[in-house]
Design a protein around this nucleic acid. Structure first.
Length: 256
DNA sequence: CGGCGGGCAATG
DNA sequence: CATTGCCCGCCG
């Protein structure tokens, strides 16, 4: 409500000693307004410029950000997948101070999107698909905290095995000869539960596909969304396709 | 062990 | 709102 919001602001300004007008505020709308909502306008995040073909389903929306792209499902209130292009330059730039402001993505209609309250006290943490640690600019870093880039993730998994996989992927991109395309996403089984009033679906598995466009090699990490997972050997691209039913990469790009 | 990176919650 | 401290897991 307006009253409580004003109260919070007045408290904040009282303690900070600065006026509201001079206190930099977080404006998630301004953060997203310039970003396209069509993959045709951000093909740079996809191998060969081509997004994976997904079987048509309701409430899919394409969201471009400065350093990644999200195919979002209003049915699960999570990403279907999140695409990135990494290389030595982007990783060397990825030393921004970590921003921590999560926010609901205003480009998604209410009812199709997760809200902060859905995650609060849910027992799950807000797990980045495109990791904050990959982000090359302050704007990209801030955008990565959109809930459109999140899934409900087991907190031990998020800070443990999954974090290690993210760091390994960054290290790989740092040493790669050229561009590395990464696609990260959730997999839901029939028994998948939900959290919050908006019913944000909890993934059963998470995957991260890594494709080196120079060597034409691809592999994938496949993890159960639970504590006790370890970052073991990756699975093959073909195995990932088999498990997800999605052809993530243009056929001609892959080396056998 | 200490450092770091993931995220949470209390506080002013 | 912004800051701070805390927990947890991995790594050197």
């Amino acid at each position: 409500m307006r009253v409580s919001y004003a109260l919070v602001l007045s408290l904040a300004s009282t303690f900070s000693g600065f006026s509201i007008a001079r206190t930099p505020q977080f404006d998630s709308a301004a953060l997203l307004t310039p970003q396209p909502t069509n993959f045709a306008q951000c093909p740079q995040f996809f191998a060969g410029g081509k997004p994976p073909a997904i079987k048509p389903r309701p409430q899919l929306r394409e969201l471009c950000y400065e350093a990644f792209a999200v195919l979002h499902s209003g049915a699960t209130r999570t990403p279907v997948y999140v695409a990135q292009r990494l290389n030595r330059q982007t990783i060397e730039d990825a030393d921004e101070k970590r921003a921590k402001r999560f926010f609901a993505d205003a480009r998604l209609p209410r009812g199709e999107r997760a809200e902060l309250e859905d995650y609060k006290n849910s027992g799950y943490s807000r797990g980045h698909m495109a990791p904050a640690g990959d982000m090359p600019t302050p704007t990209a870093m801030a955008q990565s905290f959109s809930l459109a880039n999140m899934v409900p993730q087991n907190s031990q998994h998020n800070g443990g095995a999954w974090n290690k996989i993210e760091q390994d992927t960054r290290r790989y991109a740092l040493r790669a000869k050229g561009d590395v395309y990464v696609i990260t996403g959730p997999v839901f089984t029939d028994s998948a539960t939900t959290i919050g009033a908006n019913g944000v679906k909890v993934p059963t598995y998470l995957y991260k596909l890594v494709y080196d466009a120079t060597t034409h090699r691809a592999w994938a990490h496949w993890q159960e969304n639970q504590a006790g997972e370890s970052a073991g050997a990756p699975i093959s691209y073909q195995e990932l396709v088999k498990r997800t039913g999605v052809e993530f990469l243009p056929k001609i790009t892959l080396q056998h």
